[in-house]
Design a protein around this nucleic acid. Structure first.
Lengths: 211, 211
DNA sequence: CTAGATATTGATCACGTGATCAACAAGGGG
DNA sequence: CCCCTTGTTGATCACGTGATCAATATCTAG
């Protein structure tokens, strides 16, 4: 044997880099892993393997796995929200923008993020840091939906009313996505469900959001 | 020492019983444990401790933990559905019965079952038996909601329409309950949200379900 | 060009996991 | 009353978990 035996991690030594860069790499590895296999897969060793690094290095950079899970959740959802907001912002006409937002949320192209959300609700019951992170991101999403609604709603619509309708939308999006995650579908398209509800609630002409 | 050392499980020997009875005890222990601590807590050793039995006995009765988790989920949700149906069935007037059903689903008194649902969606992504069980119970719930809707809706309402509205209700119930699980509330009462939506969808007089 | 600072590692600990199996013991049929 | 069927157990295996820490390797300041 030309190389000494390496029991714990069979892999070339990672090149020395700045702490900031290494931290970013570990965050990226954790993010990719969570999207691929869920928040449950965020293991000291699994993240380390993904980053091409010793597990003890991950432990060195993350205060604890509980924290790393919460931070990874936040990173994923925050990025997602920014992307979806940017995508919607590209649409000028408010009702079409609202529709674009809903389409993006429901088209099934984001199963990975949905999985992360469901894992988060489950784990958050036993993890205070994650619970706080989940509430924070839910609030951010609520604000984003309110923004989209406000632009599409009649100008006189009260803020309280927009809050209420946004809560309705988010409950449906989360419920429908959870259902899709186990391949359950009943009663037709979720998008049509929400669009129809919104046309009524916002006093939009029928079909304003459905086509 | 008067008793020989018992390393694995410090506990008096369980009295010999019939297989059926023992299986029922293990099911009961698993059910109670899942309601208390979530589906994640269903461990060979934890279930055994709850049942007052050696862990190997649990393994003897359950084909595998994956199966036990799926069966426990089914037992919990099936029981829950039966109870809620019975509770609603006691109400004569259809719209009041529908309201009673929704109240029961959303009053927060069933956080334990909600937790089991969320755990199930999360775990089901990695467990085919659980995924099948989840779909089955979702279908059963859908049927129950359709029943309640049919009685309260105008007689001419199409079955397809009832399916659609039931899907809407279930998505909202599941979404709202998941939100409550992490103590997130925004935009007011979930019950009012659903009741208002249903009054519109079912062409009921405003307030028919909200009071 | 060397010495100090520090990024990175491997080994290790103390658990917890599902599963298997020889051995034990308790009750019922003969 | 005794034996044998079978419900029950403890020990054990092969892992996987988060965490810690002395030792090592590499970069950089002097």
């Amino acid at each position: 044997m030309s190389t000494a035996s390496r029991a714990a991690d069979a892999r070339p030594r990672a090149p020395r880099t700045s702490p900031a860069e290494r931290a970013a790499q570990i965050t990226a590895a954790a993010t990719a892993l969570a999207l691929d296999e869920g928040l449950h897969a965020l293991t000291l060793r699994a993240v380390a393997a993904r980053a091409g690094v010793a597990s003890s290095l991950v432990a060195h950079y993350a205060p604890s796995m509980e924290q790393l899970v919460a931070e990874t959740f936040t990173a994923i959802v925050r990025t997602e929200l920014a992307e979806v907001r940017a995508h919607a912002a590209a649409v000028r006409e408010p009702s079409i923008r609202l529709r674009a937002l809903l389409e993006t949320l429901l088209d099934g192209s984001r199963d990975d993020v949905t999985g992360v959300w469901v894992d988060a609700w489950s784990i958050a019951r036993r993890s205070a840091p994650l619970a706080a992170a989940v509430r924070e991101q839910m609030t951010a999403w609520h604000a984003a939906v309110v923004d989209a609604l406000r632009a599409a709603a009649p100008a006189a619509t009260h803020a309280r009313e927009l809050d209420r309708i946004a809560a309705h939308v988010l409950a449906m999006v989360d419920g429908l996505n959870a259902h899709e995650l186990v391949d359950y579908r009943a009663g037709g398209s979720g998008l049509a469900l929400i669009a129809g509800m919104l046309e009524r609630e916002l006093s939009l002409p029928a079909g304003a959001l459905t086509r």
